[in-house]
Each structure stands twice: as structure tokens, then as C-alpha cells.
């Protein structure tokens, strides 16, 4: 087990290298440069001034040299400064991460609880009204465009009923509130994004859970369990459910990067200061250092997520052993 773990961790290093090289290559293949926003069709800048700006951003060097410089600094955990505002990439990410973690942790927990429950109920009462209704419901949630449902809920709950704030993470008078009022304020701002995110993300996990449980329920050992007279509750939650969890764990592992990645559409609609918007805006302005920083952190977490999922298999299924 220890040797396995060590090997897996060491494997992350070449993978990270490959991923970052690819990311960097793709960035530089896409048309446009970071300085374009300022220089394109700017009649007040001479050609020399434009060239000067390119040199200051280090964009005059060939791309492999730029990559090497970046990689060398990255090894020392220096991700450089954002081109947009000259602030350290890591501190920009660090500023956004808590907000995204909060939102995604809440909505993913909600998704997990709801989908495990709905999935299990639907599997045990296959083809019942509940099964059909929830199937329709989760698919509708999956199919409606996020922004559309978000805007409708904003109109209903924010504009018409005045119950919830429309967008943002905090009210403007946040700093003048007391501790408990602050928590309530943030909670109020989170209700809409969390529920919309849960609604639109429910489908996959619910269906996985249902089909995986259905498969397990047809196994011989379940029949044995029932035959020896165990109560249905125990059969379902102790014998079947645990085995049905294995594929779910894979998804859980894959969701880890999602947890920090954030969603651009969500954060834009709810004016939520998270990672998704940071990344998207960095792409638009070709902010190479910031993009590489986000890319590397996301890649690292994906690899880590895979590793954790693999380890959890062994935990959930005693038949799996790593050597």
C-alpha cells in the first residue's frame, strides 16, 4: 500500500508537467495577445510604444522560452503576477477560493443527499409513480438552461416577492452588521445559487445511484439476505447500498476539481466572486500567468481527486487491494 501510494504520488509530477505544457501550448496557439486589449486600434499609441509593452510582459520571446521561464518559477512555487493588475496569481486565487468552496460545498452536499435519497427510493420502488415523477423532475432540471431558470427565480423571489437578494454574495451594508446578521445575510444570498445549482446538477448522480442500486438488488447475496429473513430496511441500507456506492465514489473523486473550479455561468449570473469568473475573465484577456496558475491548481486537484477515489475503493470494497 505504501509503495503504491508513493508511486502514484510520484506519477503526478510528469503528468503535471505534460498538462501544463499542453495548456501553455494551446494558450499560445489561440489568436490574440494579452496586450491586444490595450493596443488594438489604439490611435494614441505608436508602434514603438506597443512594442515596448510587449517586451515588458515578456511576450517578445519565443513561446518555449516563455514556457521554460514559467516552469522554472513554478518549481519554486512562484506563479508570477497577473497581467491584468500585477497582483500575485496565488493571492488572486486564494481570494476567490473560499467563496467558490462555500458555494460548491453546499450545493454538492445538497446534490449528494438528495440524489442518494431519490436514487435509492426510485430503485426500490422501480416504475412506481415516485420513480417516474423524480426521473422527469431531475431530467427537467438537467435540461433547462441554468441562466434561464436562475433569471426566472430571481424575478419571482427577488423582484416580485422581495424575499431574497437578486445577486452578489453580501449586502452593501454588510460591514455594519453584527456577526449573526452577517451570517444570515450571506445565507440569504446563497439560497438561490445553491438551489439552482442543485436542481441543475441532480440528474446524473440520481440516475447513477438508481441504476447502480438496481443492479446490486438483483445480486444473489441480496436474495440470500432476504431469504434469511432480514428486514427490508437492513437489506437495502446495509447490504445493497454499500455495494452500490462504489461507482458513486468515482464520481465523487471526479467532482473534487469541480469543487474548486467554479462555474462561469453561475458566478456571472449571480455576480458571485468565485473561481469560474476569474478563469473566464483571464481567458478573455489572455492573462497567461493567471490561466497557467488556475490550470495547474485544477490539474493537481483532479489528479489528487483520482487518487483519493482509488483509495476509497479499497475502503468501500474489501476485495480491492493495492500493491
Amino acid at each position: 500500500m505504501k509503495r503504491y501510494l508513493l508511486r502514484r504520488i510520484l506519477l503526478i509530477i510528469p503528468m503535471l508537467f505534460g498538462i501544463s505544457l499542453l495548456t501553455f501550448g494551446v494558450l499560445h496557439l489561440s489568436p490574440g495577445k494579452p496586450t491586444d486589449v490595450v493596443t488594438d486600434l489604439n490611435t494614441k499609441m505608436t508602434l514603438e510604444a506597443k512594442q515596448k509593452l510587449m517586451t515588458l510582459y515578456g511576450l517578445d520571446k519565443p513561446w518555449h522560452i516563455q514556457y521554460f521561464n514559467w516552469f522554472w518559477r513554478m518549481l519554486k512555487l512562484d506563479f508570477g503576477n497577473s497581467f491584468k493588475d500585477d497582483r500575485a496569481v496565488l493571492s488572486k486565487i486564494g481570494e476567490r477560493l473560499p467563496a467558490t468552496l462555500l458555494l460548491n460545498f453546499l450545493s454538492l452536499s445538497l446534490i449528494f443527499m438528495l440524489s442518494l435519497y431519490i436514487g435509492a427510493m426510485a430503485a426500490t420502488k422501480k416504475n412506481s409513480f415516485f420513480d417516474k415523477f423524480t426521473t422527469l423532475f431531475v431530467y427537467v432540471g438537467y435540461a433547462v438552461p441554468t441562466f434561464w431558470i436562475a433569471l426566472l427565480l430571481m424575478i419571482l423571489l427577488g423582484l416580485k416577492c422581495g424575499l431574497l437578494p437578486i445577486s452578489g454574495l453580501r449586502s452593501l451594508n454588510y460591514d455594519e452588521l453584527t456577526g449573526s446578521e452577517k451570517a444570515l445575510d450571506i445565507l440569504k444570498h446563497l439560497i438561490l445559487p445553491v438551489s439552482v445549482m442543485a436542481l441543475t446538477g441532480l440528474a446524473a448522480l440520481t440516475r447513477y445511484c438508481r441504476s447502480s442500486l438496481l443492479e446490486v438488488l438483483h445480486q444473489d447475496y441480496i436474495r440470500t439476505a432476504r431469504a434469511k429473513g432480514l428486514p427490508e430496511n437492513k437489506v437495502l441500507w446495509k447490504h445493497a447500498f454499500r455495494n452500490a456506492l462504489i461507482p458513486i465514489i468515482t464520481i465523487l473523486g471526479l467532482m473534487l476539481p469541480e469543487l474548486i473550479g467554479g462555474s462561469f455561468i453561475f458566478e456571472t449570473i449571480f455576480a458571485y466572486p468565485g473561481m469560474g469568473r476569474l478563469g473566464y475573465e483571464a481567458i478573455l484577456s489572455r492573462d497567461y500567468p493567471l490561466l497557467m496558475g488556475i490550470g495547474t491548481v485544477a490539474a493537481f486537484l483532479t489528479l489528487l481527486g483520482n487518487l483519493i477515489a482509488d483509495l476509497l475503493y479499497a475502503f468501500a470494497d474489501p476485495r480491492i487491494r493495492y500493491r
Binding site: F147, L151, M154, G158, L159, I166, S167, L172, E267, A271
Partner: peptide, 20 residues
């Protein structure tokens, strides 16, 4: 003077309607 960042045009319009 308060300068709020609202990245979506449609949401901005809704905030206007909401008088915020």
C-alpha cells in the same frame, strides 16, 4: 459612491428594476 460589479447585463437590468 458605490461601484458594484454585476457581470451580467440582464441581471443588472433586474437590479435596476429592483431599485438596488
Amino acid at each position: 459612491y458605490v461601484f458594484r460589479i454585476i457581470p451580467d447585463d440582464a441581471v443588472e437590468f433586474m437590479e435596476l428594476r429592483n431599485k438596488s
